[in-house]
């Protein structure tokens, strides 16, 4: 993906929807219609901070057929290396940003009889557009939404008003847990489960569904990957014979972009597979942070997803 795919938008509205979450409404700078998207899609938002460019994926929350504006919501992350902080502190009504075209790695299954949505915290965002779409289609769905407290949960009132008893809220500070095992038992054939939230919650939900005898094809998840930072290392590019230093707070992809090298990417979250790169040599170990490569591929050490994975060691040689 290159700059030509980017669309310039400006912020039309900012709203604080929970103690650490802000919602942004984006419109085309020339008020041209935006592309339609499908429920569960996200865009990559490109932010021009003082010293660097930050690109983070954010899920689209509005109605998929509404082309007048897009809505995203951003959680302010502690120890953020930039993106979410920038959105909270620097982005106001009128700020211009660039976004990619929508991409969907988390669509609802077309042939499902029922959709069981499980959200934790900011993981509610992809379900906002998904529910819009499912509701318009008259599909059967229910949302189980866990939040830390009433103050930290976004959109609770709005969701209950819009979808009534199809929404179940669970407040962590009142010891309410999503009773997933019970929810998943006695569902008729054709039910699909979707989960988005913190990694431990995703892992727990996937495990619970598998132990309930649900086939992999009926279980879906999206992880908002925020991989750990590390130590600086050198990337040697075999084809272009260049050497680039990747900072401890940078991904390989970001370091390449900073040095004017265009590498392919779509999701920037280790999910889509677009940035898969051949490793021709590694002076250290690859820290695989993606959920795209198979265990065998990870173990082989021949491939790396440069949007999220790094190495612990001195240098890695890539086929670029």
């Amino acid at each position: 993906m290159t700059a030509s795919y980017l669309r310039r938008v400006k912020v039309a509205e900012v709203e604080r929807v929970a103690s650490r979450i802000k919602r942004f409404r984006l419109v085309d700078v020339e008020n041209k219609p935006l592309s339609e998207f499908s429920g569960g899609s996200h865009v990559t938002v490109c932010m021009r901070a003082q010293d660097r460019v930050i690109r983070n994926p954010y899920s689209l929350m509005g109605c998929p057929s509404d082309t007048s504006s897009y809505q995203i919501s951003v959680l302010k992350v502690d120890n953020s290396r930039g993106g979410s902080q920038f959105m909270h502190d620097n982005v106001v009504v009128g700020t211009e940003l660039e976004i990619s075209e929508p991409l969907n790695l988390f669509p609802p299954a077309k042939l499902a009889r029922k959709h069981i949505l499980v959200a934790g915290g900011i993981g509610i965002t992809p379900f906002m557009s998904m529910m819009s779409e499912l509701d318009a289609l008259g599909s059967d769905f229910e949302l189980h939404y866990g939040v830390r407290s009433a103050a930290e949960g976004a959109f609770c009132k709005l969701l209950e008003a819009r979808y009534g008893s199809r929404i179940r809220l669970y407040l962590q500070d009142q010891d309410q847990m999503v009773p997933l095992e019970r929810i998943l038992s006695n569902q008729r054939l054709g039910a699909h489960m979707y989960v988005c939230g913190p990694k431990p919650m995703i892992d727990w939900a996937l495990r619970t569904a598998t132990l309930a005898g649900w086939p992999d094809e009926s279980i879906h998840s999206e992880q908002f990957n925020a991989p750990p930072i590390g130590k600086p290392f050198v990337v040697k590019l075999a084809r272009s014979r260049r050497e680039i230093t990747v900072g401890g707070h940078q991904s390989i992809l970001e370091a390449l972009e900073q040095n004017g090298i265009d590498a392919p990417f779509l999701c920037r979250g280790g999910a889509c597979g677009q940035c898969e790169t051949e490793v021709s040599g590694c002076d250290g170990f690859i820290e695989h942070n993606d959920h795209y490569l198979s265990e065998a591929e990870k173990a082989s050490g021949r491939k790396i997803m440069i949007c999220v994975s790094r190495i612990s060691g001195d240098a890695v040689t890539l086929d670029l």
């Binding site: 998943l184 006695n186 054939l189 309930a212 005898g213 649900w214 086939p215 009926s218």
Partner: peptide, 10 residues
């Protein structure tokens, strides 16, 4: 059988 079956059937 399938018409009345639940998830968890393989």
């Amino acid at each position: 059988i399938l018409s009345g079956a639940s998830m968890g059937l393989r």
